[in-house]
Write a protein that binds this DNA or RNA. Structure first.
Length: 464
RNA sequence: GGCGACGUGGCCAAGCGGCAAGGCAAGGGUCUGCAAAACCCUCAUCAUGGGUUCAAAUCCCAUCGUCGCCUCCA
């Protein structure tokens, strides 16, 4: 039984979907006004793993991730650069898509955008006004009336009264209550604007997600995800809008990933302590970022620094070591040893599923994989042939694949392999003649070219 | 100030009432011409102080500390 931690109830609950076998999952994407950073990557990776595992468990997953392509930040940045805001947004959408591809994140089933959901946004705002949950202000803004929503604050566990104590809320006479938030913002001159019953303007941040959900899924969904910095106000406001509009519970499960920590602080655009995804990928393999995420718990803060990255990279190498070929002259494994490997391979699948079923405990799942790797390597050391290792390796590949790990060896450049084979052969000959100087020279020079040579009991193997 | 999460070996990190997973690092060993890799072995009583229980890292209370949110934010 799959169990999922639900932010709404602060409990781990059995996972049951609205429709048997189908999962409706909505994850908040990014506001596109700048290069995405590794914190965004963490979130994308977390929900990619969740999605892959749900599919592995047999669910048909509809995964929707939005792009916020119109808001103050985009407009400001566009003005700075002298670029059209919508073009700027498009540019960063393309970039982000590329980032996700590079990170081996499966493309979402659909990527709606605020600017393309205008009809639904407007009809939702209209509906909320009709039901008394929203009101237009004299200047053309439309606000949500939080005091009208008895449940307001249930996701983040806040009460309206408590929040005012913080006193960081500026009082606007346009609002009936300081906590009221904008559904529609009247346009200032030169800003991108859409026609509405309240004059030209653009949607507030929160309404787009409610509207997209309605457009993509209907009134109710199974999973709503995002970073835990979105719990308040964004998701709180989404719930308020959606539930007041439809009169039904919005999302069954609310899932939030923890924040990536850089030097003890959250990495964010406003703090300026950013490592972009592009920058990261220029220095490390995509699987390294994924290993880092997988090693921890998706809900907890994630330490991002050279030390944790090195560790993740080594762990990744170790996982790959299980995939290395046996020596061609391997003598073969005894039947007992072979069946022991098969048994452990099955146990690994079970342990993997048990862990992942427990609120996507990827760290435990990884532990199962490491144990399988050790068994494979032991078998190889004991003289197993490639055919004998194949089933266990296939399990390893499959399960690693469920986590989204590619475990790719650095790719050879086509024909080069044949020449490396030749050099290794020559070296073997040199070793037979105890010409250590020559054999070491070949080994060292190949290493400089990125080829690693390993002399084993049953002969020499190599890999990139 | 309010709300919430969390504090497990040198580092990252599982565990959620019954002898403390896993990875990295470190030390010792096997293998090797040497090396690399692999394999074997060693390495924690769980922030602190109380309490509940036959039994607690796991439940309760307090203290200290860290982080997130309360403003745009994955």
């Amino acid at each position: 039984m799959l169990r999922v931690y639900n932010t709404l109830t602060r409990k781990t609950e059995d996972f049951q979907t609205l429709e048997p076998g189908k999962v409706r999952m909505y994850v908040c994407g990014v506001t596109v006004y700048n290069d995405a950073h590794v914190g965004h990557a963490m979130s994308a990776l977390v929900f990619d793993v969740i999605r892959r595992y749900l599919e592995y468990r047999g669910y048909n997953v509809k995964h929707v991730m939005n792009f916020t392509d119109v808001d103050d930040k985009i407009i400001n940045r566009a003005n700075q650069l002298g670029e059209d805001p919508l073009r700027l947004a498009q540019r960063y959408i393309d970039d982000y898509r590329q980032n996700l591809t590079d990170l081996n994140v499966l493309p979402a089933t659909s990527n709606p955008r605020a600017t393309q959901t205008m009809t639904e946004i407007l009809s939702m705002i209209r509906g909320l006004i009709e039901k008394g949950y929203a009101y237009p202000a004299p200047n053309g803004d439309v606000y949500f009336r939080v005091t009208k929503d008895a449940d307001y604050g249930k996701l983040s566990g806040r009460r309206i009264e408590d929040m005012q104590a913080g006193a960081r809320i500026e009082v606007e006479e346009l609002k009936e209550h300081p906590m009221d938030f904008a559904l529609w913002k009247a346009a200032k001159p030169g800003e991108p604007a859409w026609d509405s019953p309240w004059g030209k303007g653009r949607p507030g941040w929160h309404i787009e997600c409610s509207a997209m959900n309605l457009a993509e899924f209907g009134e109710q969904i199974d999973i709503h995800g995002g970073g835990n910095d979105l719990v308040f106000p964004h998701h709180e406001n989404e719930i308020a809008q959606s539930e007041c509009f439809t009169g039904k519970p919005f999302s069954r499960y609310w899932m939030h990933n923890g924040m990536l920590q850089l030097g003890g602080e959250k990495m964010s655009k406003s703090l300026g302590n950013i490592v972009s995804i592009k920058e990261f990928l220029s220095r490390r393999e995509a699987d390294v970022m994924r290993m880092l995420v997988l090693n921890g718990s998706y809900r907890a803060p994630l330490m991002f620094n050279e030390e944790t990255l090195d560790s993740a990279e080594k762990g990744l190498e170790r996982l790959k070591s299980g995939l290395r070929p046996a020596a061609p002259s391997a003598s073969g494994l005894s039947t007992e040893a072979a069946s022991a490997l098969a048994t452990l391979s099955e146990a690994t699948q079970q342990a993997f599923t048990d862990s992942m079923d427990n609120d996507f405990n990827s760290s435990g799942a990884l532990a199962a994989l490491f144990e399988l790797v050790r068994a494979i390597n032991t078998a190889r050391d004991a003289g197993a042939k490639d055919e004998q290792l194949a089933p266990a390796r296939s399990t390893l590949r499959t399960l690693a694949g469920v986590l989204g790990l590619r475990l790719a060896e650095k790719k050879s450049s086509g024909d080069a392999d044949r020449f490396v084979d030749l050099l290794v052969e020559v070296r073997t000959e040199a070793r037979k003649q105890k010409n250590w100087a020559m054999s070491d020279l070949i080994r060292d020079r190949l290493k400089e070219l990125g080829v690693v040579i390993e002399d084993g009991k049953d002969g020499t193997i190599w890999h990139w």
